[in-house]
Amino acid sequence: MPDDGASVPSDWADIAFDGRSIRIEHQWLRPERAQRPLVVFLHEGLGSVSMWRDFPQRFCEAGDFRGLVFSRYGYGRSTPRPHDEKWGVDFMHRQAREALPALFDALDIGLGRSRGKPWLFGHSDGGSIALIHAASFPDAVDGITVLAPHILVEDVSVRSIEAARQAYLETDLRSRLARYHDDVDSAFWGWNDIWLDPAFRQWNLHALLPQLRCPVLAVQGEDDEYGTMAQIEGIHRYAAQTALLKLARCGHSPHRDQPASLTQDAVRFITAHTSYLK
């Protein structure tokens, strides 16, 4: 696991989700750049604010953007998932359609509140949540960048997630992840149990993707252990405005494996497609 490179202090927002109040850890980056595009970073299935390290800060500096990084419910310093709560097959849809809009409301983000609409920058599960949100609320975002997103469940994904379960039970993975989450078991089992549930094998975004209207940059590493190029090529098939970025010598985390190439292409894409900068 990478070292914790977060240096910006976290704040908390209270949102209503699933019939109760949830505390969401978040950090604002470069808030003084109020006239520049806002990029909202959505982490991976085991991620959090601190797991991003300093990539969001460096990315926002490179593009002269503002940024927002947050830990979803069950992750980081946000409210943990109760251990007896099992997430359903629709857990990413609920994050995209319920939790994310609630957070935007709490932080006064959105059309008519701050200049322009936000960009979503999602990794893995966070990329899928970005796709669902943009397709469900086509007027809510200016565009999205998705790294190693999931639009269907592949055999390679299941094999790698099974391997992660064994590593969590048999190696020091649990102790390493514990640095990034207040309740590491809540974070790990919430993610792992639903991805390995047989009912989840039928999950996909095929019916939703044609509803995408915004610009999309879809990024995949050639050596991604959790998915193949079918993921981003499928997005392009359903949403022709999607630009594809395929990175050599890159696994499941392009922002760690190829940060310079990713930053260069993604900054250029966001700058070129931000509506009020044209």
Rank of each mutant, 00 (worst) to 15 (best):
G88K: 09
R165N: 07
M229C: 12
Y73Q: 08
W87R: 09
A102I: 06
V219P: 11
P138R: 09
G88I: 03
M229R: 13
I194V: 14
D125L: 08
P9A: 04
F70S: 06
Y276H: 09
P37E: 01
Q220H: 14
E32C: 02
R66K: 04
F104C: 00
Q27D: 05
F269N: 04
F121L: 06
P101F: 06
R53Q: 09
V39F: 01
P82S: 03
R237T: 14
R256M: 10
D54R: 00
G88Q: 04
G76R: 03
S128Y: 05
R23P: 01
L262M: 13
L196R: 14
R20W: 08
D84V: 05
L29A: 04
Q258M: 11
M92R: 06
L46F: 04
G110A: 06
L217K: 03
L212M: 10
W28V: 00
H236Q: 15
S175N: 14
L169Q: 15
S175P: 11
T271G: 02
Q220M: 15
Q258P: 09
E98A: 02
Q211R: 15
H252L: 08
D105H: 05
P82K: 07
Q241W: 07
G88C: 03
R58T: 06
E85T: 07
E25C: 03
I232T: 13
A164M: 12
G122C: 10
A62S: 05
G234Y: 11
G116F: 05
P215Y: 15
I24L: 08
H252I: 09
I109W: 02
R53L: 01
F65C: 00
M92V: 06
P259R: 09
R176P: 11
T242V: 06
T79K: 03
V69R: 02
R115D: 02
D193L: 13
R201L: 15
L212A: 10
A230M: 11
D108S: 11
E233H: 13
L262A: 14
Y226M: 12
Y168P: 06
N204I: 04
D182H: 10
V40Q: 00
I109C: 01
P138K: 07
E222I: 13
L68M: 01
P31W: 14
R115W: 06
D193N: 13
L42D: 02
F200P: 07
Q220T: 13
S175Y: 14
A6S: 04
Q95A: 07
W203M: 03
H133K: 00
R33Q: 04
S175G: 15
E85P: 05
Q258V: 10
D3T: 03
R179D: 08
A148I: 12
S50M: 00
R53Y: 03
E44K: 08
P149R: 10
N192W: 10
R77S: 13
D265I: 04
Y168Q: 11
D18W: 00
Q264C: 07
P118K: 01
R97H: 03
A148Q: 11
A167C: 09
S21I: 12
D265S: 12
R77E: 12
D155L: 13
A260E: 15
R268D: 13
F269Y: 07
S160M: 13
I235P: 13
